[in-house]
Design a protein around this nucleic acid. Sequence first.
DNA 1: GCCGTTTTCGGCCCGACTGTTTTCAGTCG
Length: 573
Amino acid sequence: MHNVEIAWVFYEIADLLEIKEDNPFKPRAYRKAGRTIAKWDQPLSALKEDEIRAIPGVGAALAAKITELLKTGKCEYHQKLREEVPLGLLEVLAIPGLGAKTARTLYRKLGITTIDELEAAAKARKIRTLPGMGNKTEFAILHGIDMLRTGSGAAPVGVATAVGRNLAEFLAALPEVTQVSLAGSTRRMKEMIGDIDLVVASEKPVEVTGLFVKHPSVKEVSAHGENQVKAITWLGIQVDLLVVGPQEYWAALHHFTGSKEHNQRLQELAGERGLKIYEYGVFPEGQDESLPVNSEEDLYLALGLPYIPPELREDEGEIEAALEGTLPDLVSVEDIRGDLHLHSKWSDGVATIEEIVAAARQRGYEYIAITDHSKSLAIAGGLKEERLMEQHRYIDELNRGLEDFRVLRGIEVDILSDGRLDYGDELLSGMDVVIASIHSGFRQSREEMTKRMLSALKNPHVNILAHPTGRMLGRRDAYEVDLEKVFEAAAKYDKVLEINASPDRLDLNAENVRRAAKDYGLKIAVNTDAHHISKLEDMYFGIGTARRGWLEKKDVINTFTLEELGRIFGKRG
DNA sequence: GCCGTTTTCGGCCCGACTGTTTTCAGTCG
């Protein structure tokens, strides 16, 4: 049993306990342990009992449940809870703004046990009859259900990539397999992934597919042919595996990378040149032997085109640009010299500044900015003025001991509900980097929210606007804001907008990034907002979004040298 | 249910926001 599966059981136990109204600290204990287990380096199945017991947050009771899960694949306590609580309520909990207490009230007063029943009750205006709930709650529930339904079945790219890589690594290790790649929307770095596509080159497709369906991540096989498999993994994500001969690999990889629209345009182009493109190769009209295709470059070359990177293959102007020779030279992870939005132990991060520096240097970075939370965000350990000054003195001291690396003294300052910043100008003027962002008052009107952001952008000390729309993928919509006005103001006051690289956010998204950079000439910072050193790797997803937004190195400020960066930040205020 | 030089019970991230109230409960981060 995979660590994540154990964590999953614990999360569900936590939800069930909350609905049951047990000791409120119990679910917290299960969640905390679940989070730790999910991130644990070694598989728990490889650990001895006392090693499991030594995991922080795992006591005698949870250790016993882990052992039981590893041995039997089940946990009696979990099963018992599932019998006591209607399971549909777990789905109901996924509706934003609706927690365990409300779920319980809905169950006890209206007998609601599923999302469908909840929707019917909301439409029949029964929700507003309950104590503490009114028409707005009812509307929010309907809106939330709508959001869940449109996103259902799809996984954020972060999850899909992790699952896909895991399977790809397994396949790559098989002696029968010569090549393997993620394809489809995961390779194109779309933000939500419907199914994971894997393309494999092998002379022995039957053996490969036969092993694949036995992989522990595979929960259910919906189709199993000689050279392809459709399966559902333990996270409920569909995976499509295609095995082709080594000669057909590149054409197949290209075909299953898509998008469909991009491929259709290529087929039209091929037709004009007397060629046909299939997933098996590029064929001159009337012949059944493919032109030699030993890379995706070869395939584009056959059509008289330069190579088009996967992130651009959406038929959104890339074919025209390729024909004109004006394709962008996309920014890449290797171009990145530093991360400008990071949290340390001083607020709600888990690493010391020294640990972050070490991890950043390992990635080849030349600088980072430590940008902990400001005082209003008390729950995240936001820094009071004196603490912030203390941190900056600490960083100064640290910098004195560092060669070829620089820690910038920064802050992620909250934009308060009325548009003021959480610190005064005097304090902000002493920072190397000021990131402004919104963590409260998400439901203000479009006018208020826009005004609030413009007021922050006007502040001469602000350098970067972080996660500008506040959306959380599949969980929370962007807040109401007039982005055009934000872009205009950012251009006017010379501010940088962020691509928050956390795969839960990816904010700005690719479409907005492309508009901001191309229509408004704005510079972008791709930042991970990491609270843990392992999350520095999220840069990959941020750069994916930047590439989907057609950004080049010159558009992204954290590809610049420290000196260039200083000029960008220094010319303000 | 976990944790502890506050050792075996009593804490456990805590304040803002929202919608419903008319002083507060529930949710979120």
